Amino acid sequence: MNTAATTADRPAVRIRGLEKAFGDLSVLKGVDLDVPSGTIYALLGSNGAGKTTAIRILATLLRADAGTVEVQGQDAATAAARVREAISLTGQFAAVDEVLTGRENLILVGRLRHVAEPGAVADGLLARFSLTDAGGRRVATYSGGMRRRLDIAMSLIGEPPVVLLDEPTTGLDPQARIEVWDAVRELARGGTTILLTTQYLDEAEQLADRIAILHEGRIIAEGTLDDLKRRFPPARVEYVEKQPTLEEIFLAIVGGKDTP
């Protein structure tokens, strides 16, 4: 067996038959998902669809009731410590210390993760996310977009191969969202695998290499944006063909409104 080829072909994240309930409320009902290495993969769904629950199981913060979750070939249930070494999780709200400067936040995380030369690592990340000029300022003075960019930069310390972004632009204004999108693209250019959850359809449309739609605890559609568009016939006007937006595709698939 060619081990190198097998490792290269293996998805960064592999989920099979994932189930989770809270009391009588069944949140995940048999989710299957493969996230190819080096891609931006969007898990799209409305509030309550189960996106954050899936992310928390992936991050070993919750135990699944049934099914398997693997990250970089490691089982989240039986090898949780190795999974935690392979991932970084950025939640819905920036986990930064407002009293410290941006650079101090990065250095602190670098020391906690025992990286060599945390100051140099911090400076490199500030430059990578266009925060060098703000690096010496207290985070309390940062805009929402700057805080999220810093938060994402912090998630890269230790160079985890897989980054989980759980609704990273929640509550941000349009300009701040664009700043975060640029940061996510920068991650992808560096070869990081990104699993992004979002309820913003334009976010998935702008960023994702592949998209899965999670609805009422199940994956009901998956593929590239072009794959999903082929499932949704374009509306036609007399001389103009209108390509459907991802919003129209999503609502048609989950039954939110009639197709045009």
Rank of each mutant, 00 (worst) to 15 (best):
N2W: 07
D9T: 10
R10K: 09
V13F: 04
R14T: 03
G17S: 14
G23Y: 13
V27M: 13
V27A: 15
G30C: 05
D34S: 13
V35R: 00
G38V: 01
L44R: 03
G45T: 03
G45S: 05
K51Q: 08
K51N: 07
T52Q: 11
I55H: 03
L58A: 03
R63C: 13
A66T: 12
V71F: 05
Q72K: 03
G73Q: 12
T78E: 11
A86S: 15
I87D: 07
L89G: 04
R103H: 13
N105G: 13
G110L: 09
G110T: 11
R113V: 06
V121P: 05
V121I: 12
R128N: 04
F129S: 06
S130V: 06
D133K: 12
G136L: 07
R138T: 10
S143Q: 03
M146V: 05
R147G: 11
D151A: 09
D151N: 05
D151Y: 00
S155W: 00
S155Q: 02
L156A: 09
P161A: 04
T169I: 12
A183I: 02
A183R: 00
R189P: 00
R189N: 04
L195Q: 01
L196N: 01
T197G: 02
T198R: 08
D202K: 03
D209W: 01
I211T: 05
I211V: 15
H215C: 07
G217W: 03
I219L: 13
K229W: 11
K229M: 14
F232P: 08
P234T: 15
V237T: 15
V240H: 13
K242M: 14
K242W: 12
P244I: 08
E247Q: 13
I249D: 06
V254N: 04
D258I: 05
